[in-house]
Simulated scan of single mutants.
Amino acid sequence: MINFNGQLLENNANFLNGANRGLRYGDALFETIRVVNNKIFFWEPHYLRLMASMRILRMDIPMNFTMEFLQQQIENTIENNELQDQAVRVRFTVFRENGGLYTPATNNVLYIIEAKKIENPFYVLNTQPYEVELFKDHYVNSGLLSTLKSNNKIVNVLAGIFAKENGYDNCLLVNEHKNVIEATNGNLFLVKGHTVKTPPITEGCLNGVLRKQLIDIIEKTEGLEITEAVISPFELQKADELFLTNVISGITSITKYRKKLYTNEVAKQLLGRLNAKARLI
């Protein structure tokens, strides 16, 4: 079942048309949310990011868009898909109503909630080889809009195609200054000695929910230091570890970039702390 603006519809229902502004202009935002046993992971940060992003895109926020209301809509969707006792990936998409060309006829919004079962109730570290390469065909601009989780993700799409065609598991994206900012589907962390580095939001990386959680965890972990700083491509092969984060998979360790092989000791340590924090929600 799909939740379309509060109405539950069958998955094959035709409820959108060619005038949809998310389709026509990418005039949409989305949140990808992890829910386990009907408990939403990091719901408040997701909600606050969505509200802030809607304001940046000048979307009118409905009066009923409270944390409690949207949580109830998510829970209703999960229940109607009979996934209350499962680990679930929820996608919450919000878009401006039909009308207008580039300039919208209205700033009113509609939303869609989708729910899909995922395998693991806890974050687990993938032990399989995971090789990445730089994607340099196109750049991500280091502006505020690049930090939003919007439907404008064509660079990520092309990078994903590049990775698939060339036998990589993922690609790392660069901005117009040729600094490394993130992967196609997650924020990037680099470990060198006892220092963990991640690009600042000003570089154009996604303002990731799990990125913030990891920064907080690292700040409280004895023996580790976190810094938000520019990462150049030359630093990648000098690092001890590279790992990616997103709210669905948690932490993904990169095992290889070009000729460099990486360990995953810090990622293992942080994964345990991340699971402990998620259980306390």
Rank of each mutant, 00 (worst) to 15 (best):
C205R: 12
G160S: 07
A163K: 02
Y130R: 00
I215F: 13
G186H: 14
C171F: 07
A163H: 04
K197T: 15
I161L: 08
N185W: 09
P129T: 05
L214P: 11
E182P: 13
L158D: 05
I215S: 00
G204Y: 08
L134A: 01
L210I: 14
F189A: 07
P129W: 04
Q128T: 01
L206T: 12
Q128F: 11
V132R: 01
E176H: 04
V196D: 01
N151S: 12
L214F: 15
K164Q: 11
K153I: 12
N170R: 04
K149Q: 07
A183D: 11
E219L: 12
P200F: 11
F162K: 13
K178L: 02
L210K: 07
F189H: 12
L158H: 03
H138A: 11
I161H: 09
D169T: 07
L172R: 04
C205G: 05
T202L: 14
G167Y: 15
Y130C: 05
F189Q: 10
G186K: 12
H194Y: 14
E131G: 09
S142I: 03
E182W: 10
N175C: 10
K178P: 08
V155T: 06
F162V: 06
K178T: 10
I218K: 05
S142H: 09
L173N: 05
K192D: 09
T195R: 15
S142E: 06
V191W: 14
K212A: 08
L173M: 10
P200L: 11
T198C: 08
N187T: 14
Q213R: 11
I201M: 13
L172C: 09
E222A: 15
L145E: 00
R211F: 05
Y130I: 06
I181D: 03
A163L: 03
N166R: 15
L210F: 14
V209G: 04
T198I: 15
F135V: 01
N151W: 10
E203C: 15
N141M: 09
G208R: 02
